[in-house]
Write a protein that binds this DNA or RNA. Structure first.
Length: 186
DNA sequence: CCCGTGATTTAT
DNA sequence: TAAATCACGGGG
């Protein structure tokens, strides 16, 4: 699912204004087996319970006390798998994004990282556990085939060195040569 | 390189 | 109740 989401459009409507962008970088978190996942070992707490919802639910959590990271739950109920949206190529609402991300030095820097996406889209804990299938303010616009074909790079995930053998699992995906990703593999 | 920042989790 | 942890980003 992390692969299918690449190239699709993430939309957030605030006060009738659309913030949108093309998903260019994702990471998969594979539920109870994955030592890097919040739901590893079947952990079900106040924070992680939204990971146990049905696919299409948003999962937003606060990271390092500063950043709201946006994920999409992707499996069936009680199977806590999710995809982290790590980077987006902005397409609509650039002015709103710039206002929310004063530190960004250029447009490609607006959403080139998971914390940046959270800030630019205005996400916080109130955006957690939303059913994106029925929501008219937070959803993914799906296209059957990408307008422009792209190559995908597969590599290891970022910032999970503690996860032992799972730290090297090839579960990060991004669109090759896209200037809006957080960082290149090598 | 180094550090802020604070909810969540896990250890006493 | 206390301490450690952490799916990051910005500034030197």
């Amino acid at each position: 699912m992390a692969l299918q989401l690449l190239g699709q459009t993430l939309v957030h409507v605030i006060d009738g204004q659309r913030i949108a962008g093309r998903i260019v970088e994702t990471e998969a978190y594979l539920g109870v087996e994955d030592k890097a996942a919040h739901s590893f070992g079947g952990r079900k707490t106040a924070r992680t319970q939204t990971m146990y919802r049905d696919g299409g639910t948003s999962y937003v959590f606060l990271n390092y006390g500063i950043h709201h990271l946006f994920n999409i739950v992707v499996a069936k109920e009680d199977d806590p798998k999710a995809v982290l949206i790590r980077a987006v190529e902005p397409t609509e609402g650039l002015e709103l994004m710039r206002a929310r991300r004063p530190a960004a030095k250029s447009d490609p820097d607006l959403c080139s990282g998971p914390g940046k996406v959270g800030a630019a889209y205005g996400f916080d804990r109130s955006h957690d556990a939303i059913d994106m299938v029925t929501s008219d303010s937070l959803f993914v616009e799906l296209k059957k085939a990408p307008r422009v074909p792209f190559e995908i790079v597969t590599c290891t995930r970022v910032g999970i060195d503690y996860a032992e053998e799972w730290a090297t699992a090839p579960l990060r995906f991004y669109i090759k040569n896209n200037p809006h990703i957080s960082r290149r593999a090598e």
